[in-house]
Every structure is written in structure tokens, then in C-alpha cells.
Design a protein around this nucleic acid. Structure first.
Lengths: 336, 336
DNA sequence: AAACGCTGTCAAACGTTTTCGAAAAGGATT
DNA sequence: AATCCTTTTCGAAAACGTTTGACAGCGTTT
């Protein structure tokens, strides 16, 4: 019955034209102060709010920034908090969208989501860990931690190479020599950088690289269990595993528990990211902290700059990582 | 230059009408199979994606569920994870919106956001901790932890009263008798329930209620610092404080630190919620765990049921809480 | 009397979906 | 083989709720 009032309802109730209402609501020039006041009174009585969709369709400006994610998992949730806090003082609203995971074939979710929202609805976008990263001509876009190498997009990411170096060195400093690596898909930039850091740290320490000790997961807990099991079933199994992200490390922890391997006594485990969950597992995970909220906040600030007319010049911001030592790493058990 | 292709571009390129393209893309009845195939080929070549905004404006169905939050803080971020996981297997996309915090006057953000998005853009909404909670006639709405009492909306919430009882009893069991309460605005339902639980536990234990020991915060860290300071500056200050949520408890921890009061030796602190941050503060916070992700998932399931035609009957789901003991509570120091 | 500034209305446009009708294509009946 | 009916295929146009540029009316100022 009492459906949402439209601008037509307001116009009819106030006895003016639709365009008059539009001008009054948006404070446009070309309407008398008292008429405007009368209209706004009616607006208030009826509880009218302009439809974001309809207005955006016509005006192509909405005052909304979109964050496009594949999924609301811990990493993107942290990003979101950062973006939110950066936008809190701005005039922008925040809209986070997780698009159709199903049926997107080869194109990837990001192209589809971006295409469906851009030009309308959102004035600018932040894409979280996109795989295909092609610039949009419609609206400014900033990428956070893009998975492919050369991005023609302004990018904010953390120092994967340096972080992986820190992680591996930490294990080496503890005395480990057989260190396994549970990576992500090697076609993803952050994954390959982390592997590069792992290998460089080994080389620096004069430890020969053993391909047996490298397995690939998919940055997910479930998909890392199998490779983790492979690593831990090796005849001469590693005394430490560096997983390319925390979710994978949690997979390692699970498998180790099932195999009766005590962490950290018999096995040290390192993660990467420091998602909130890292501290909730048992034992709490030693990891490399990515400043996820700052990643989000920085991206938001960059995007706002872009929106206010600054040119991007293929900006690329890199934020430092930090070792967070908790309870999953320890010196290796002395050889029995 | 290469602006996003519209349905008109596709139609022109394929040499058919706009409506033919629409039918082909949406798999509607009334188009020949080979024509459709030809059109879809062009669609792929041009990389066309229908505009969510334009299509929703006409059809009023979008396959998108909206989560409306005041802000992306830890609590709503956890909810979001839960909603996301519940929706992962469904055919719905997820859109989270944090509306204009500024200039919303008395009406509250939720009415404005809901009004701007409903009827278009989203098929159903989940409102996180809304204050004014009036049913929308446009689309189904489920509320999570609404702040006002009588909700004419289907609601999912956790057991604030029971949780507060648990919390206060825990402190009493440790031996505390002067227990402070740092509440939220008493007009908010969850806040008053938590205060009720606090008082009932005191009564049950035969401890007289002292109004001096009750202060109101605003469920935020910053806004709880002043009341926390008041509590801790009392001549006969409490040996324990139960804060109505974790963010407030973190405020208490900060103030205690500044005043040189050692937690938990000189002061025990309890929170409520168990947000990820609760474990990251030092010392880690003892708190009452709300199953936030389950709250979100349950709300999503209820909403999907509503969307597929089930009637609500003012459904009200309550989820249990659980005491999570960490390091901010201990028996009171023996009287010096 | 001409020119101007201010108000307010008209109508087009934004990119879709959907209803409806027309045209075309078959099939069946003479 | 011609006619009629049914079915299929396709396009024209309206509608969704807004914004905006052009324009008309009108009282003022020169």
C-alpha cells in the first residue's frame, strides 16, 4: 500500500512540477527560497528519499565509492575497515560488492562487477586482489594487491618480497635448514614474489634449494591441506614450513595436528598476512603482518585524489611488512 | 574513447533490435536459437555486461541482497563474513552499503539507506544494529541486533541478558564485589538488557546495587574513555568493570594504562562481543562471545526464506553467548 | 518599450526490460 | 495449389525515477 514515495508524489503533494522538486532537493539554482522551503517541508512529511539508482542513471555521479571483492573473507574484511575509516571524513558513501562467483568463466569476477557498476552507481572503484587488471575508461580504479604483474592501474600493495625474506630468515635464524614452502599459484604476483623471497633467503644463508620442499596451495585453508600433507609425509620432512598466507598456514596447522606432529616442537609454521584469525588458532600463528587496514585506507586516499582530478601516473605504493612472532615457531628439535 | 558498450552498441553491431539483445542475454522466450547465438557472440566480442542500475530500474529484481551498516567496524565486518558465507552457495550477490553518516538528522541512517536502495538495486536487506526499525513495504528486511525494543521486523540477535549474567557472575565468582558497569545508551535494547543482566547477577549474589558504579558510554572506544576515567577516579574505585561491548572495554584498558592501574592485578575488565580486536589488545580481553558470523549467516538464511515467499510471522531468533576467558580478569587484589 | 533576471515547467535523456503487435514461416485443410 | 490458422520470430515503444537544458511567463529596471 504505502509504497515508497517518488519524486512525482512529492510534486503532486506540493502542487509543483517534478523538476522543481528535484531542484529543491539538490539545492540547485533556479528556484525561489520560499517555494523550496515549502517543497522540502513536503519532502520531510512524506519521508521522500531520492532513489540512488534512478538519480545515478541520469546524472552519472553518485558520491559513492565501490569496493569490489571476490568474497568477504578475512583479508578483504580488513581492507574494508581501512577504506571505511578513510572515507568516514569524506563526502563519499561506501559500497562493497561481491559479485557472482558462479558462471563468470574466464573473464574473472572483477571485469564483470566493474562493468555492471561503473558508469553508474559508483564514481570510483577499489578492486581487492584482482587477477585481470585492465584499466577502465569509465571511472578511476585503484587496485589493492593485484595478482598479475604489470598493472596499468594505480596500485597499493605490501612488500611481499621483503616479507618473505623476513619470514624465511626468521626460520633460518632459529636454526632451521629444511624449510618447506607452501605457495600460491605461481601465476599470481604476490605468490611468486613470496617464493622469490623464500629462495633468496635460502641462497643468502647458503642453504641449497630443494624442489621437493615446495608445494602449491591456493591461498585457501581447504586447498592447502593436500599439499601440506604431501610436505609432511616426506621421508625426510621439513622442520619448518613457510606458508604463503595465513589461511594456508592454518591448513598446515590442521594437518600437523591430524598427523600428531607437535607445533612448534616438531614443526615450525609461519604464515603471511596476520588476519584476525591468525591469533585465534592454537597455537597462535607467527606470521608476517601486512598492514591490511592501511592498505585499504591508502587506496581510498589515492582514489579520492584521483576523483578530484589528480592524474595517476601509474602510481604504485608499497607498504612495509613486519614480523609478528607468536607461538608456532621455535628452534628445531635436536636430531634424535 | 572506448566507453563501456551499451545494449545499443551490441544491437547495432549484431544488426538486430535492442529488445532482441535483451532477450538473448537474459535467455528469455521469443528468439530463435541461432539469432541468439549470433548475438551472444557479439556480446562476448564487445565485452558487454548489462548495467545493474539500468536493469534494476526497469525490472525491480536484481538478485542482490543488501547489508546496511552504519559503518564498517569490527562488529559489522564479522557479520558481513557470515552473510557472505551463507550467500556463497545461493544465487544472490552481496552488496554492503554504509550510508551517509553526515546530515541524517533524527531519522537515522537506516531509513535513508534503505529508502535509497530498496525497490531498486536490492531485493532484500539485512540491517545491522539499526536504531529505528520500521518495516519496509517494499522489500523483505531482517534486522540483526536491533537497538530498539519492539521490532515489527524479523530479528536475529544474541542473548544479551544471558551473556551479561555470565559476565557478571564470572567476576563475582572470582571474588569481586565492587563491580562497575560501563553501559551503552539506555534507550538501546541490547544496552539495557546487558545492564539488566548485570543487576540481576548482583541481586542474585546479594550484592547491593550502587548507582555510582554505573556509567554510560556509546559502544565506542573513544566515547568510553571519559566514563571509564570517572569510574576509575572514584574514591573507592571498583575492582572490576564490565563493559557493555569490547570497544568500550578497550577504552577502559587504555584509561587504566594511563592511570597506572595494572590489569588484571588491580582491575579486572570484561567485554562483550569478542571482536577480533579483543585478542589483539594487551592483555587479551576476557569477554562474552557473540557468534557474530553465525548471526550474519542466520540472518541471510532467514532473508532468503522470506524472498522465496515464506511469511515471517515476526520471527525472532536468539543465539547463545559464551564466556571466553583470557587475561583481563583475575581475583581482586587482597585488601592492602 | 525593450531588455533583463528570476521562477517554474516541459521534455528529453540515462540503459534497460517487457508488452504488444506485425510479419513471416509452417502446417493442415480444402 | 490456394487458403486459413497457428506458431514463431522480431521490432517499436512505453515504462522505471530521476536530472537537466531549453524555454516561457512575468515583474523590474533602464
Amino acid at each position: 500500500m504505502a509504497r515508497r514515495p517518488t519524486i512525482h508524489d512529492v510534486a503532486a503533494a506540493a502542487g509543483v512540477s517534478v523538476s522543481a522538486v528535484s531542484k529543491a532537493v539538490n539545492g540547485r539554482y533556479g528556484i525561489a527560497a520560499d517555494t523550496s522551503a515549502r517543497i522540502l517541508q513536503v519532502v520531510k512529511e512524506l519521508g521522500y528519499e531520492s532513489s540512488l539508482v534512478a538519480s545515478s542513471m541520469r546524472s552519472h555521479r553518485t558520491g559513492v565509492i565501490g569496493v569490489l571483492v571476490a568474497d568477504f573473507e578475512p583479508f578483504s574484511a580488513e581492507i574494508l575497515k581501512g577504506v571505511g575509516s578513510a572515507l568516514r571524513e569524506s563526502r563519499y558513501d561506501l559500497l562493497a560488492y561481491s559479485g557472482s562467483r558462479h558462471a563468470d568463466g574466464a573473464t574473472g569476477w572483477e571485469r564483470r562487477s566493474l562493468s555492471r557498476l561503473s558508469g553508474t552507481l559508483i564514481d570510483g572503484a577499489i578492486m581487492v586482489t584482482p587477477t585481470v587488471v585492465t584499466a577502465s575508461v569509465e571511472i578511476p580504479v585503484v587496485a589493492i594487491d593485484p595478482h598479475t604483474g604489470r598493472a596499468d592501474l594505480p596500485t597499493v600493495e605490501s612488500d611481499s618480497l621483503g616479507g618473505a625474506l623476513q619470514a624465511t630468515r626468521h626460520l633460518i635464524d632459529l636454526g632451521h635448514r629444511r624449510i618447506g614452502f607452501l605457495g600460491g599459484r605461481p601465476d599470481l604476483r604476490s605468490a611468486s614474489l613470496r617464493e622469490a623471497g623464500y629462495r633468496r633467503a635460502l641462497t643468502d644463508a647458503g642453504i641449497p634449494f630443494d624442489p621437493q620442499l615446495v608445494q602449491v596451495g591456493m591461498f585457501l585453508t581447504a586447498s592447502s591441506r593436500e599439499p601440506a600433507r604431501a610436505l609432511l609425509s616426506l621421508p625426510n620432512r621439513p622442520t619448518a614450513i613457510f606458508a604463503a598466507n595465513d589461511l594456508s598456514a592454518i591448513g598446515v596447522l590442521q594437518v600437523a595436528g591430524e598427523l600428531g606432529i607437535d607445533v612448534p616442537r616438531d614443526l615450525s609454521v609461519m604464515g603471511f598476512d596476520d588476519i584476525p584469525e591468525a591469533i585465534q588458532v592454537s597455537p597462535p600463528l607467527t606470521t608476517i603482518r601486512q598492514p591490511m587496514q592501511r592498505l585499504g585506507a591508502t587506496a581510498a586516499e589515492s582514489l579520492i585524489a584521483l576523483l578530484s582530478g589528480e592524474t595517476s601516473d601509474a602510481m604504485r605504493i608499497q607498504l612495509p611488512t613486519r614480523l609478528v612472532r607468536r607461538a608456532t615457531t621455535a628452534p628445531p628439535a635436536p636430531p634424535a
